[in-house]
Design a protein around this nucleic acid. Structure first.
Lengths: 204, 204, 204, 204
DNA sequence: AATGAATGAGCGTTCATTCAT
DNA sequence: GATGAATGAACGCTCATTCAT
């Protein structure tokens, strides 16, 4: 506890924090372990005491911060496949994204780099699973697009709208609102017995 | 001139083709000039005869393949700011994207890397300009989200839907349909008649 | 031709020379590419222009300097399997070893390191082939030992006797003499005429 | 004390065992303390509790397992310098080698690495001493070669013959037989008054 | 008797880039 | 229009070693 940074057990955590910050700011490939180490005032070798490889740091971040998403999926898979459930999925997903914003910004902006990391495939599968939870099978293409767009807008929106004015929380809600609209529109109302003449056009 | 090489004159073009292919496949940072040169069966130094730097290759690609987008913008800025115009912008943009798919895939998946290339800012401005063409100023947040989502879904959709079945052209049309819907919804025509004193409609 | 070392086409050769010298002096693992580069007054990267990897340097040395051995084997395989041939093999091998002494010293003293280089297996096979040329099949164990010892004494002898006094050429001849004796003893000629019913002699 | 670890007191011994195994299998330089520690399921720091340095592990192995050799030398130096004694030296040395086979394989295959360990010189001196016990001073070069070859064949033979068929013990005896022959031949029988027509002289 | 945390030096390798020819 | 040869900087990673606990 004498030197500048107390040698407590928080180093691993600090590495994760700094790494995520730099990864999401400068990109995965452009962020070197030297940079991370320097910012932490430790040596590169210290990073290797805590993580086997550079990739391993990302993997750990993905596991630690991505947990809410996986939990959401587990929960959703136990629910009935109703529109209500889908709306709840979107709502919870929106919150999961908020809680791990830098991670998702990183995944979003470094897709090419992430693709050949071990988590690349995992992430892709997760997205497909989520997509599977939202869409109705055997609907028309446009409905599938609506679901995918809903999902992607939640990811992209967060960063694409960064240069817009406004309270982040308001933006998040607006994004969620639009996503909900899209998924609602993608849920074939014509099957619903009560409204026989709905042609999915006037989706309010 | 018999074998695969020796086609004079078109080397610059061939470099662009191969570079774009590799950039969009493996990512910008992971693609080395050595790889490009090897695939072309020329030396690295040859690349430097045609392009000042690695970045310069990307810049040239962006300029050559991005021209339709800029032309679209120029055209749109001379049009009245009607819903019809906006629909036309979406339609044309969709075609521009199709004609330069690998470039946009590259831009989409390498945002972090592109960000500190000289075209990074240019690209961002272009997106903001397009956004400016679609949105109505001073509308509620959700409408802005709709416009951004429309734009982004056209980008992301192309790649996100790659693992879905179906004819690419059908998918493109479906995406365009949804995007058009979103922009239409963001353009509150129904409000205009009822509220004759609305201040935010006919902003030049 | 202005700087200290004329930039002629001999760099590759110079790398091989210096590398072999250092490899055989300090060992393969202890010799770093930095050392080699510094001794040549070039950068490490220059080594990589000429050789793909550190291992590749060794491979090239083995191929270039080991050629006489392979030629010897080719020659011997076209000869009748007589004692005279075997003596000639030893004699020529002795000269091949002399002409590439540092390489063989290196191979001898870095067996563990060489083992997981690509040439490790190649070298082993070469030795087994030579052994196959010297020995009579189906003779008693001691005769096989004599042949192996003959071979090994030529390798080891050169370096084991380095700290002994005397002219190297004299030593080489003495080693060859002993090796010849051993192979002769392993070739049981005296048994053939006197004992026509001997079991292990006339194996084709 | 139930699981594999927890056998107190013998850790030092276990380190030696594992270290020797890995050193002789992968080579000295290629074997890291991490590997050794992992195989033992202890930390690297634990190795440092028992041994000052990596080199120190080798030194301890050399001292512990090389004892029979040193005892052999002490014994031999108290004997008359007769052929019988020399034969006995060979025989005992052969057994000493067998009892510490991995150590000698290690020394044999890592000569370059061993050379700049502190035991390098010690080992060399031991070999020279043994050589001094076998050779007759002032004999011709070829006789000296015979003695060195005898010694080396016992080392090298053990590993060179590993890929040959046959019972290890049989091989060892065959090697010993040849070595004895060589030393006998190196012992000038022409000086012995009783046998003027010795058989193995006319070897030119 | 052993660990957890860290270091400093160095490694093999790759990269974008340069320049004389 | 292109090459051969080289550079300087950096990279991810591993190593033997240390030391307070």
């Amino acid at each position: 506890m004498s030197t500048s940074q107390a040698r407590r057990g928080n180093t691993r955590q600090r590495i994760q924090d700094v790494a995520l910050e730099l990864f999401s700011e400068h990109g995965y490939d452009k962020t070197s372990l030297r940079e991370i180490a320097e910012k932490l005032d430790v040596t590169k070798a210290a990073l290797y005491y805590h993580f086997k490889t550079k990739e391993d740091i990302v993997v750990s971040l993905f596991h630690d911060l991505g947990k809410p998403c996986d939990e959401l999926i587990v929960w959703a898979e136990g629910q009935p496949r109703t529109l209500e459930t889908k709306k709840e999925v979107l709502s919870r997903y929106s919150e999961a994204l908020r809680s791990a914003e830098p991670l998702f910004r990183f995944m979003q902006e470094n897709q090419a780099a992430v693709r050949d990391l071990s988590i690349g495939e995992t992430f892709k599968q997760r997205m497909l699973t989520l997509f599977g939870l939202l869409r109705e099978p055997d609907t028309e293409l446009a409905d599938q697009v609506r679901c995918i767009t809903a999902l992607f807008s939640m990811h992209a929106g967060m960063f694409a709208m960064q240069n817009l004015e406004g309270d982040p929380e308001d933006k998040r809600k607006a994004i969620l609102e639009v996503a909900t609209e899209l998924v609602t529109a993608a849920n074939p109302p014509h099957r619903r017995p009560a409204r026989p003449d709905s042609a999915q056009t006037d989706s309010p």
